[in-house]
């Protein structure tokens, strides 16, 4: 028996549980209720209501991604610097939330912001009115950043760690000041990590539905909510599939564009 045959069960499983289901999505996307071919569901995705939802999802996800880069880059940079690289526990602590149950993290942020939560207890103790944070766009954004920040720190940290320190020393020896070294050497060399991070943060945040449901209390329909609705409430699988297909294509295109920005592609896959 040849060893390559061992990949048989795996290949079979992937075909049955990855390829087949995707075929289902594609088939349903081009079907009406009777099963006849139609592109109505696809064109419906481009209607005003859904474009508005898409715009809101993309806007929130972009805001979340930008915040994660701004907060996460310095974090990864400091962790990788000589001052802190020996504190391994610190690194583990910052990454730990990544491995915690996603819903648990969302629930934790929800309990912080809720009407009877600790922030409101402090706010009222200081003599201000209760602050209704749950159900606002800010709460949803907070929940997203809270959930996805570690996913930004990890790849940036990895790319910084892998960097050849001698390149930085060379730049210093050639008389570049610290700001110049950072802008001209460190930052460009860590871009592959930033790009992995952007993918890891943008993708789940643009399709989330639980965060917007729980922290936005349903006031902010995002693309994920609309898709979930088609399956769990409206029972319109064809339209749900069209939306899913639409989102997947959108994400694949953005990943493709991001990868083109990335010059050292071979290194990128190693960051994860």
């Amino acid at each position: 028996m040849k060893r390559s045959f061992f990949s048989g069960p795996y290949a079979l499983w992937m075909i049955m549980f990855t390829i087949f289901p995707i075929v289902f999505v594609a088939l349903y996307a081009f079907q009406d209720n009777t099963g006849a071919f139609t592109i109505d569901n696809i064109t419906r995705c481009f209607e005003g209501t859904y474009m508005k939802v898409l715009w809101r999802s993309v806007k929130l996800a972009l805001e979340c991604t930008v915040l994660c880069v701004l907060l996460g880059y310095p974090c990864a940079y400091f962790l990788a610097s000589k001052d802190f690289s020996k504190y391994k526990t610190l690194f583990v602590l910052i990454l730990l939330p990544m491995w915690m149950n996603f819903l648990l993290r969302t629930y934790a942020s929800m309990s912080l912001l809720e009407r009877n939560g600790i922030i409101n207890a402090i706010v009222t103790a200081l003599g201000f009115d209760r602050w209704n944070m749950i159900g606002t766009e800010g709460a949803v954004l907070y929940g997203m950043v809270y959930n996805y920040l570690p996913f930004m720190v990890l790849p940036i940290h990895t790319s910084l760690k892998k960097m050849d320190q001698r390149v930085i020393e060379a730049a210093q020896d050639l008389g570049a000041n610290p700001a110049r070294v950072f802008l001209k050497v460190t930052l460009p060399l860590s871009m592959s990590g930033v790009i992995s991070g952007i993918t890891m943060v943008f993708m789940p945040s643009v399709t989330t539905f639980a965060i917007s449901k729980l922290l936005g209390s349903g006031n902010f329909m995002l693309m994920g909510d609309v898709i979930e609705n088609q399956y769990m409430v409206a029972n319109d699988w064809s339209f749900g599939s069209s939306l899913s297909l639409f989102m997947t294509v959108l994400i694949l295109i953005s990943i493709g564009l991001l990868n083109r920005l990335d010059t050292n592609k071979s290194e990128r896959s190693d960051n994860w």
């Binding site: 990949s7 795996y10 290949a11 992937m14 549980f17 990855t18 390829i19 087949f20 289901p21 995707i22 289902f24 999505v25 349903y28 993708m203 789940p204 643009v206 399709t207 539905f209 994920g224 898709i227 979930e228 399956y231 699988w237 749900g240 599939s241 899913s244 989102m247 997947t248 994400i251 694949l252 990943i255």
Partner: peptide
């Protein structure tokens, strides 16, 4: 081919993986 196939569930949004399996 097999490796690319393996990347697929890792890059697809969870919600799409979820609904596609549910439909099947």
């Amino acid at each position: 081919t097999l490796l690319n196939l393996s990347y697929l569930p890792m890059t697809m949004p969870d919600i799409v993986t979820g609904i596609s399996l549910m439909m099947m």
